[in-house]
Structure formats: structure tokens, C-alpha cells
Nucleic acid binder design. Structure first.
Lengths: 226, 226
DNA sequence: CCGGATCCGAATCGATACTG
DNA sequence: CAGTATCGATTCGGATCCGG
């Protein structure tokens, strides 16, 4: 009853009624990284009005997409239901599609830990990836990015405390990579790793610059054939 | 500058800013069937206010998703750009996802030729499909559905004249199938073809009832594993 | 008929403040 | 921490109108 109906009996329409409202899919995006508390979501979506976050969570619960789970250690988290988790390939595909249209960031655009985590998942190519273990900084966000046996693992380091259930990987990364928004040119294959360094899109603060070859191979989004 | 920004530098966010406004993805759904005129779109989306249709088309053009093409035979059509057409797997996946949540139709819900066409594409399994040629009626909508060599072809018959570029298949269909909304239970595999007939979800008006076996095999959506 | 543009009331959204 | 309340700013929906 939350969403005004489109008046059509159709799967796409039903889907859009469930997750098509403003902010809804971004909430799902963040929950795909892991369960989150109300406050975590609010921080990860800095511009969302709190009443809207509240409404969306209620609607997503009514739609069977999200579940509210009390924690034994006080507090509660929101997490995706299996049905909600089934959106993962769709959100990843949307991320790849939208990636093509990303220009330079507008003033005030931020990068959040969850959005960057999903961006990495979005561009990850299991079949091309060799093992890799780096610390990646973009803006304020710091992630530990580990590829092992064609599997991607991302842990959030700096801004807040590690999220619930997030286990910090032991050991030291092979390298520390510091990047800005221009890193998308590396992922898009517009520039080689060497060019990316030369143009200051990316810097390797510690470790060998050759690590970027492995990075660019593991994380890549092909342009849409015209 | 149409869409209010979410303030994040992220592919998913960019995608949602391009196609996340109300009605936008349904316009894309219809355009995935083929180029459409303004009036076609308005008919296929009976509840869309005309000013909204107008705004969305403008925004989709600005976003590089839709193109406005004047026809030599007078008039003009909207069609997807290659970038817009790249949404096809996403829209199909969303249709499959939303299908799981479809209950019975609400009062006033309609089925349109384009939505039914996309619903068939959504549920089509090329690897399982044997050749098939039927006329399918759901509500007022009549389609000619042809499977040949694991390829699906759908032509719209009754309500309006065949759409631009739509070629009516020659010859007679093997069968005429008349269904209601309950056909989704057949596609979901909740019922066998025989049960679907017994429960009056589907009727074979002409031809052999066994044709439904081929139909159910070609068009199927697996439930999401819980 | 086609392809919209305009106007206006209703519903939603955004920003801020406030509470258990 | 996890929301609710309030209120002005936008957007949406429905109807009408207009030029070709």
C-alpha cells in the first residue's frame, strides 16, 4: 500500500513497486555488503532524510526484501532476506551499466565504504584475477582488498570501526594504493597502469607499482559495444 | 539537471539517477520490444500522466538512453540507444525477480502487449525450448509466440495494428491458448499443464492440449532458493 | 489523431528538530 | 541508538488545452 500502483500486472512493474522508490535500491546496495544498523545506513547515505530511511525500511520489510534482526549484544540490524539477496546480480549489473555514464564527481559527491566495496564487486572478474592483497584508499575510505583463488574479499578499515561481523584480515598488504575518482579510467581501461600513475590518477604509496597490473586485470569494466 | 542528486560517486547511484525516476524503467521496458511513438507509449502505460511521459522521455534522452527518431513516413518514434539497449538483461532479470512477488492482480490492473511480450522474454529458457508456434491470449492481448531453433519471436496481434516494423508471421499457429493471470502458476511450475487446464488457469481453444507441455518447458521461472 | 504544453490539487520528499 | 514530528519545497497525477 506504500507505493502508488502502476496499474499493470507484470513482473517488472512489481519489481519497481518493491524497490523503485527513491533511495530504496541504495539501501539494498549497502545491505548487500552486510547487515547494517539504522545509523550505519544513515551514515552510508549522508543525504537521505531520516524519515525517508525509516519509510523505506518499513516498505522493504513489507515487501519481504529486508528483515529486522535484534542483536543479542543490544541494538538491532537490518539485513536482506534471501529474496532481497537475489537482487545482488541485478545491482551489480546496474553498477556496471551506470559506471559507463559516470563523469567526474560533482561538488559534494562522496565515496562511502559500502559504495566502494560494491564498486569493486561490480568490476571484479574472477576468471581474470590473480591473487592480490592491497590496501586501497579513495577519498576518506580505506579498504583491504584481497583476491585469493578467484574470490574477492573486501574489508573496511578506516572511517568507522570494522562493521559487525567484519573480520580484519591478518598480515600486511602487499601494497598501499591511493587513488582518486580518476581510478575509473584505469578500471575502464582508458589508461594503462603506468599512464594512471603518470597522470596521478593513482599512486602506490607502499609496495611495487607493478601491483597495479594485477589490480587492473582483476577489476575491469568493458565499455558497451556501440 | 532533472534528477536530484544522491550525492554519491558510484555506478549504482549514477544508474538510479538515469533510470530510477518513477515510470522511467517501464518506458524502457516497452522500448525494449521495439521503437514506439509517443501515443503508443501512452497507451502501453495507461496510468502515466502525459506531462510525466514527456519529462521522462526528455530525461532519458539527456541521459543517452533513448533517442528520438523522425520517420520518413511522417511521425516520429522513440527508440533505445545502444546504451539503453544494454539494459535488456537487467530489465529481464528484474522481471524474473518481481515475478516471484506477483500475487493476484489488483482491480484495474491491466496486461499490455508490451508487458506480456517482455514477460515471455523474461521467462524464456532457450536451452530448454523446443520448437513451438501458438497464439496466446491473455486478457485483451493476443500474441503470436514462435520458438524456433531456441530463438523466441513474439508478434503482437490483436489490439492495435501491428507495430512499426512488426512483421506478422505467415501460416497458422499450432494452437490457440487462452489464459488468465493464473498462467503464472504454470510458469512458476506450481502446477502441471494438466492441472492448469483442470483448474481453468489456461484453456487450449484450438489444437492439442499437449502443446502446453512444450510451453511450460520453454517458459519457466525457477523460484528463488530459500 | 499526433505530440505534446499548461494548470492545479494531492501526495511525496527534504531538512531540521525533537524524543524514548 | 532508533527512530517520530513537523513543515516548506518538489514532484506527481488528472484534466484540459493547443498547434500541426
Amino acid at each position: 500500500m506504500a507505493a502508488r500502483s502502476y496499474g499493470q500486472y507484470c513482473g517488472v512493474t512489481t519489481a519497481v513497486e518493491l524497490i523503485g522508490e527513491r533511495w530504496a535500491l541504495l539501501i539494498v546496495r549497502d545491505l548487500l555488503v552486510g547487515p547494517r544498523r539504522y545509523t550505519d545506513l544513515k551514515q552510508g547515505l549522508p543525504r537521505i532524510p531520516t524519515n525517508i530511511l525509516s519509510s523505506r525500511l518499513k516498505e522493504l520489510q513489507d515487501g519481504g526484501v529486508v528483515r529486522r534482526v535484534p542483536l543479542r549484544s543490544c541494538g538491532l540490524v537490518y539485513e536482506l532476506t534471501p529474496y532481497g539477496r537475489a537482487l545482488e546480480p541485478i545491482v551489480l549489473a546496474l553498477g556496471r551499466w551506470g559506471f559507463q555514464a559516470m563523469g567526474d564527481p560533482d561538488d559534494g559527491d562522496v565515496v562511502t565504504p559500502d559504495s566502494l566495496t560494491m564498486a569493486l564487486r561490480t568490476s571484479f572478474r574472477p576468471d581474470q584475477a590473480r591473487d592480490l592483497d592491497i590496501e586501497l584508499h579513495v577519498g576518506d575510505v580505506a579498504l583491504r582488498v584481497i583476491v585469493r583463488d578467484a574470490a574477492l574479499q573486501v574489508a573496511q578499515l578506516a572511517p568507522p570501526a570494522p562493521p559487525i561481523g567484519g573480520v580484519l584480515p591478518a598480515g600486511e598488504p602487499e601494497a598501499v594504493v591511493v587513488a582518486g575518482p580518476g581510478i575509473r579510467h584505469l578500471i575502464a581501461g582508458d589508461v594503462t597502469p603506468a599512464e594512471a600513475i603518470a597522470q596521478d590518477l593513482v599512486a602506490v604509496a607502499r609496495g611495487e607499482e607493478r601491483i597495479l597490473d594485477a589490480f587492473a586485470q582483476a577489476f575491469h569494466i568493458d565499455p558497451i559495444a556501440a
